[in-house]
Design a protein around this nucleic acid. Structure first.
Lengths: 200, 200
DNA sequence: TATTCCGATAGTGAC
DNA sequence: GTCACTATCGGAATGAG
């Protein structure tokens, strides 16, 4: 099952992966997601071993941990904006309007090391390929960083099955239900993106 | 919907299709199935217009029609054996053992002209590609020619839905249930065939 | 159950 | 929900002056 530990190298030895690691210090590594689901998609990896092996729901019950990460989250968002603006420009030239960023953790992660997703909301990354990818960022499956700590009765603390069922929900974009047709929705997503942004 | 009439040319003008038509007279055309599901796969097509447009269940209520076709069925089986033996030979050399032949009509045909399938039981034709193909010849979905006329209470006279559900049954070969895995079953079918027969 | 094309769905294996 | 591969399953079109 070693794939579950794919993030370990960036936590243990970030200095060895300069092409992937955007920033690191003793507390975190911030890396580019190898399979981006948005035009920009970063991961913040806490380097503390105890923190890293917890699920987000547990790790962020602790206020000190949350407070520590808060600053890095702001930094991650800043890095994401910079990366996005380096490649994309609004066609209307309005530089006040900033691309929105999602900061979240998956309620059922597949990789064993705690990671905070920081990604643009376009959902147009090269590796956005199916319904589960999409729903994992657009439904409650994604726990927003500012939702932590979860209330004690939040189903996402315990009910893995219910969380996973969110990934099978009908696709919804702009209030339109695309049912099973991921491809059609994706075409619309790309269309809409291309109407607003141009490649630099 | 013209695909439903794909067989019409062979009924109307068999003389124009010598590469497909093995035999014809005023009553029938016997042709090679364009998408063979067995190593040899023929179709017997009654040329009488009234007969041709009936389902087998109805057409073969009539004894005269059955008796007329009986002879052609025997001829079709003979032709199938000849065609098979022209290409395949038993490895054990036992020429007494003859390849078994299925003679049947589908309880829910997709083509509008009545056609009797005559095919070897190997289920190893080039166009045996999925579960429905297989089940259409190995379950009660296939009405054997000698089952006609059907008893009045046979569900296949009326219950199209139940007939169609037979096509979705689990795959069974040699008492083994292959569930959804058509490819694995097919590999076994080909294996077993190749153990007994060699190409001439 | 005619085929073919496309796409969604499902299971697996990955060291 | 890591990906990538294979295969299964599911719908729609097929014609054409």
């Amino acid at each position: 099952m070693s794939f579950k530990y794919a993030l370990v190298p960036y936590i243990r030895a970030p200095e060895k992966h300069p092409s992937v690691v955007l920033y690191y210090d003793e507390n975190v590594s911030i890396i580019k997601d190898a399979f981006p689901k948005g035009k920009v998609h970063l991961l913040i990896l806490p380097r503390n071993e105890e923190t890293s092996k917890k699920r987000s729901q547990e790790a962020f019950k602790d206020e000190k941990t949350r407070k520590l990460l808060e600053g890095y989250v702001n930094q991650g968002v800043e890095l994401a904006h910079k990366a996005f603006n380096k490649t994309w420009k609004r066609i209307d030239g309005d530089e006040q309007k900033k691309m929105k960023i999602i900061v979240c953790c998956h309620s059922v992660p597949s990789l064993n090391n705690l990671h905070i997703h920081v990604l643009t909301t376009d959902m147009c990354g090269k590796n956005m390929k199916n319904k589960k990818h999409y729903n994992s960022f657009t439904t409650e499956f994604a726990i927003k960083f500012d939702e932590f700590p979860l209330k004690e009765d939040d189903y996402r603390l315990q009910d893995k099955g219910r969380c996973e069922s969110l990934l099978k929900q009908d696709l919804v974009y702009n209030g339109i239900n695309y049912k099973g047709s991921f491809k059609k929705m994706q075409a619309k997503l790309h269309d809409d993106f291309d109407k607003v942004y141009k490649h630099i």
